[in-house]
Computed example of a mutant assay.
Amino acid sequence: MTRPIILHPATPAELVTLILHHYWHPTTVIVGSPKQPFMEAFIYEVNALPEETLPQIRRKTLLQTSVSRHIRVAFAPTVTHLRGFLSVFTQSDSRVSPPPHQSQQQQKRNSQQPLLIAYGFLEVHRMTTEWSAQGLGTSAGSLVEAAMRNGFRAAIVEPRGGGDGFESWSSFAEEKAPVLNGTVMRESGAWAGRMIEVGRILGRWFEIERLPDEEVIT
């Protein structure tokens, strides 16, 4: 099996476009947020962009309709929800069926290893007691184990842009987290105790997809 991967950050619409173009049933997406905010962000983004920017999403083609019905999506607004979903994840209990009448290209894509994508993996941990090497490592291990158990390839995609202005994996990788869960934050807003870069934490499990000029902490 190929090594788990961290894909380049993407907006909700870019994530959907990525799946439409490159992945097929039974690829599964776990969104690290409640359903409503994700859908609102997706709809706002699509409506705000010129039609030629995201034509494959704006135009309700038969392919898009088919894919939307055959890609499994789950919402995990907390770390507890995320780990709970991963602990019982199995493709056999999915109600999402494979698309009918696949073309030769689609069949080739379908024969490749599907992804188990955690979208907003860091976001769901940030500003919680699980924002630490210990907490992130526990969740990353659960994601990788659930993917391997079902013949999937584990993947992480972080939201691009937003209030923090993250545009690349490097901007996430350079963030620091405490080593242990429950580390106290000082009045200054800085964490107490030893800190470690997020890129080093996740680099134990994941291969990094990056742009040619993007440096990543290893």
Rank of each mutant, 00 (worst) to 15 (best):
Q64K: 12
I57C: 12
P98I: 09
Y44G: 14
T53I: 08
F85Q: 01
A118P: 05
G120M: 04
Q102H: 13
S66I: 11
Q105W: 13
Q105F: 14
F75C: 05
N47R: 15
L122V: 06
I71F: 05
H70L: 10
S92H: 11
I43M: 14
R69S: 14
V144L: 01
S94A: 04
Y44V: 09
M39G: 07
R69G: 15
A76N: 05
V144W: 01
P26E: 02
P114V: 10
L63N: 11
Q64L: 15
E130S: 03
S103W: 08
R95I: 03
T129S: 09
A140Q: 00
H81T: 03
L86I: 06
E123R: 09
E145S: 06
S66K: 14
Q64V: 08
L86R: 00
V124Y: 02
T90L: 07
Y119M: 07
T80N: 09
E145Q: 05
L63K: 10
S97I: 11
A76I: 02
L116G: 08
Q113D: 12
V96E: 09
R59P: 10
S68E: 14
N110V: 13
A74P: 06
S142D: 06
Q105G: 13
F121Y: 04
Q91I: 10
A133E: 02
S92Y: 10
K35M: 08
L115G: 08
F75Q: 06
Q113N: 13
R126W: 02
L54Q: 11
S139V: 03
P34D: 09
V46A: 13
E52T: 13
R126S: 04
L82K: 00
Y119L: 06
M127Y: 08
I71Y: 03
G32V: 03
P99W: 08
E145V: 04
V88N: 06
L49H: 12
S68L: 15
K60W: 10
S92T: 12
L115D: 07
S139I: 02
Q102V: 12
I57V: 14
F89N: 01
I57F: 12
L54W: 10
P114Q: 10
F85M: 02
Q56L: 14
P50K: 10
V79G: 03
I57H: 12
S103D: 08
I30R: 01
V67H: 08
R95K: 11
A140T: 00
Q56E: 15
P55V: 09
Q56C: 15
E51W: 14
Q134R: 00
T27R: 03
L86K: 02
H70P: 06
S92C: 10
E45Q: 15
Q64E: 09
T78S: 05
S33W: 07
T80L: 07
E145G: 04
V144C: 01
Q102P: 10
H81S: 06
V29T: 00
R126N: 03
